[in-house]
Design a protein around this nucleic acid. Structure first.
Lengths: 321, 321
DNA sequence: AATTATATGTCATCCGGTTGACATGTGAAA
DNA sequence: TTTCACATGTCAACCGGATGACATATAATT
């Protein structure tokens, strides 16, 4: 059986209270007894039981993290930073891949509450999950409006969309089409599209948008078929941009002379695998930092943070524009 | 304050024991009381406290997962599947990104033990962390030997290395160079290299291997400089393969006519971003399934599973070979 | 009428650690 | 000599829920 505080006390020849004092640095402890206790812990290979501790102090140092999937390089990188920063602050991550399914998201929320997490970071992509409104449980959204009174951290999607569109226009494109994933009205990411439409109209151009969910390739084929005159595409993420490049090559469109593509996200993985792709890079690390900062402030009840945090994006000009 | 069982009992007009009986489906419960209790739980927004429950039943349904980083597409995808399968079995994931640092790995191990995880899945890349030998705590390694008595699950790295090398030879290559990440003697992944060397020698060819850690591009440049006659490269993962392709293009080597590349892993992300790359695809989902299967068997003490599980890989011939 | 399966309540104990109250015993400073 | 900071022990209560023992009561069977 695992050793407990009383076992350590026995071996060290002290009282359980003294062991607890050593563990928590409370009250007076003599140097020799502290040594004795520490040696006893080592000898028994004792680890304090954080479950018992959490029960009493009513704090678990657990943060629930809900995103669609770590398979996606953007979320993978974001979660990496979140976990990393959280760990440096003594918090641990309970990972949830909601896969964009509302029911999963709901059941994860229940699970996290049963596990008494101190807070939740959510960037899943479902609408209508109102259960996020949990009084007494701090929640922060990433790139997603979860509810009226939940803070959101995102990058400057409008500016990103603007820069991408403007770049294509500056390069002389006139038939620019936007393609994005499933529309999520409550998502700041939709501002990318809004910016695209605004910039297009400001330049007397007609915005055309295609949506894809899952099967990118089919939608892209359709897009090319229906718009033979298309000279450039602004894709709402790099994965879609990559699929566009692929289709363009099949159609013998020469990039960038004949046809231009710009993506969105600029993750480490994309930069490694597709360095030539022009893209709008999100400040993933900074998003993670800000998100945790706000969440922990909420957890510690240190006044309310601002409801919306918008971080700057960066245009990376590659060889596809 | 959060409602507890006794609050539910009061509202439902029953005893706490009865609520617990409803919660755990034990003993006799009448239909009407069950309804009453369930309604009271709904009304109070009651969630059972799993921390308290875990303390008593001495089981947390938590699995600690230690890998270098979710940023890497292979680990990102593997962790996705692990979490996914675990969730379907009622287990939750405590995520740890060790970043290949021994000290982090050690402190994560301590953290996981304090949190009373039921088991650990580790695929980090450090040698010398002997702390994995924890009696009473089930551990399974992925693509990594952690200790003599810890089961490992991996894909058939030797066969993958063999197939990759053989393919290049079949295509007429003679100056094939292998490039891999940091050497880890205790890692089954090293079998890729071993297979490469064996196949080369079997074909009267001289194996040459380069190692890279972190700065791929510099090592690759050096490789090309020192071996102008190189006609193909077998990279130990797709990210390195991508960097090789990039350098080859800079050096005006035409792929695949003049120069061939084959990678390793074949993750979803790589397939999307670099579909033309030939690669050896690992059965990531199956690795996750088998790993959890073995871990849970260990947790439930259902006899010992086999110490080494090797799953088949698949050659994907793209346009780079 | 006796038996039994069903239904619910009371009560105490346990899980492992934390904490406050209080007692006791040093040795050093006032 | 008194006072006090330092050091450690004992004890009980508590965190929220699980569980076993035992009592009681109703309704259905025999």
């Amino acid at each position: 059986m695992k050793p407990k505080i009383s076992d350590v006390a026995k071996v060290a020849g002290v009282s359980p209270t003294t062991v607890s004092r050593v563990l928590n640095n409370r009250g007076y402890i003599g140097e020799k007894t502290r040594k004795k206790v520490e040696e006893a812990m080592k000898q028994l290979n004792y680890f304090p039981n954080d479950v018992a501790r959490s029960l009493f102090i009513k704090k678990t140092f657990l943060i629930g993290v809900i995103f669609p999937t770590t398979t996606n390089p953007f979320y993978g990188q974001l979660i990496f930073h979140i976990e990393n920063i959280a760990a440096s602050l003594g918090y641990k991550i309970l990972l949830c891949n909601s896969q964009g399914q509302e029911d999963k998201e709901r059941s994860y929320l229940r699970m996290l509450q049963r596990n008494q997490v101190d807070g939740i970071i959510a960037g899943a992509h479902n609408r209508g999950v109102k259960e996020y409104d949990i009084p007494t449980l701090p929640v922060v959204g990433v790139d997603r409006y979860l509810s009226g009174n939940i803070p959101v951290v995102s990058s400057d999607n409008y500016d990103g969309g603007r820069q991408a569109t403007q770049l294509l226009i500056n390069k002389g494109c006139e038939n620019i089409i936007h393609i994005n994933g499933p529309i999520l009205l409550e998502t700041p990411a939709n501002l990318r599209r809004k910016a695209y439409e605004d910039v297009m109209r400001d330049n007397q151009l007609t915005p055309i948008t295609y949506e894809t969910e899952g099967n990118n390739q089919a939608v892209i084929k359709q897009l090319f078929d229906e718009n033979p005159q298309v000279d450039s595409i602004f894709a709402s993420d790099d994965l879609i941009a990559s699929a566009v490049m692929r289709e363009a090559k099949i159609r013998k469109r020469n990039i960038p002379s004949d046809f231009k593509v710009i993506g969105y996200d600029g993750t480490e993985t994309t930069r490694l695998l597709l360095p030539e792709l022009s893209t709008i890079q999100q400040p993933i690390r900074e998003i993670a930092e800000k998100t945790i900062e706000i969440l922990i402030k909420e957890i510690n009840e240190e006044g309310d943070s601002q409801m919306e945090t918008i971080l700057p994006v960066r245009l990376i000009e590659g060889e596809t524009t």
